[in-house]
Amino acid sequence: MSQFWERYVLPGLNQLNLSARSVGGKATGSLLWKRVTFLVATPVVGLCMINAYRSIEEEKKEKDLRQPFVKYEYMYRRNKRFPWGNGERSLFHNPDTNALADGYEL
C-alpha cells in the first residue's frame, strides 16, 4: 500500500500543491492519465456497479407487483403468426414481463 501511495497519490497531490512531503519529479502526460484512471475512474465504475445492482434488486421487488392485464383492441394484434414455435410468442419473449393476447402466462 505504501508503494501505491508513493507512486501514484503523492505525485498527484504534488501537482496540485497539496503534498504532505516533497516527492521528486513532476507527473506529465501518460503518468497523469494513469493516476486519473486509478484514482478517479476505477471508483466511479465501482459506484456505477453498486447503483446497477441496487436498481436490479428494486425491479425484482416490483416484479411481484405487476400491473393487471387489460385487453385493449389495438394491443397484441396478430395479423400473421410468428414463424417459430407456436406462433404466439415473439422471438425475445419473456413470460414474466411480456403478455400474450389472452394475458400473462402463469
Rank of each mutant, 00 (worst) to 15 (best):
Y104H: 02
E62N: 03
N79R: 12
R77A: 07
K60A: 09
L106W: 10
L32A: 12
D64I: 10
N98W: 09
K26W: 08
E58G: 00
N79P: 12
A27N: 09
W5F: 08
G85T: 12
Y74A: 04
K71E: 00
R89F: 06
S55F: 07
T42Q: 08
E105V: 00
P95N: 02
K60M: 03
S22Y: 15
L91F: 11
A99P: 07
K61H: 00
A52T: 03
A99G: 03
Y76F: 10
K26R: 11
R54E: 05
W84Y: 11
A20G: 14
S30M: 05
V40S: 13
A20E: 15
V23K: 01
V45I: 14
L65Y: 06
K26I: 01
S55E: 15
G46N: 06
L13N: 07
M75R: 13
D102M: 06
F82N: 15
G46E: 11
K26T: 12
F92I: 04
R54W: 07
V44N: 05
K60Q: 05
V23F: 08
H93S: 05
I56A: 06
P11W: 00
T42W: 10
L13P: 05
N51M: 10
S30K: 04
K60D: 07
L13D: 02
K63D: 14
V40W: 07
L39V: 04
G12N: 05
L31Y: 04
S55N: 07
G12H: 06
L18I: 00
W5K: 14
L91Q: 13
P95L: 04
S19G: 10
P11H: 06
R81S: 15
V9Y: 03
L100I: 01
K61W: 02
M1P: 08
A52K: 09
L106T: 13
R35S: 06
Y72F: 00
N14D: 11
M49W: 07
L106N: 12
T37Y: 12
P43N: 02
L91I: 12
S2K: 13
H93R: 03
T42V: 14
N98Y: 11
V44G: 04
M1F: 04
I56T: 06
Q15P: 03
P11E: 02
T97R: 05
E73S: 02
Y74G: 14
F4L: 08
Y74Q: 03
G87V: 11
F38W: 09
L91V: 11
K61S: 05
W84V: 10
G12D: 01
F38M: 13
L65S: 06
D96G: 01
D96I: 00
V23I: 15
V40P: 00
W84M: 08
N79F: 15
N94Q: 08
E105R: 08
R54F: 08
L32T: 13
G85N: 13
R89M: 10
V70T: 07
G85M: 11
L10S: 06
S22I: 14
G12T: 00
S2D: 13
Q67L: 03
Y53C: 04
L65H: 12
R81H: 05
L18N: 01
Q3F: 14
R21V: 10
T37M: 11
A99Q: 01
W33Y: 08
A20L: 15
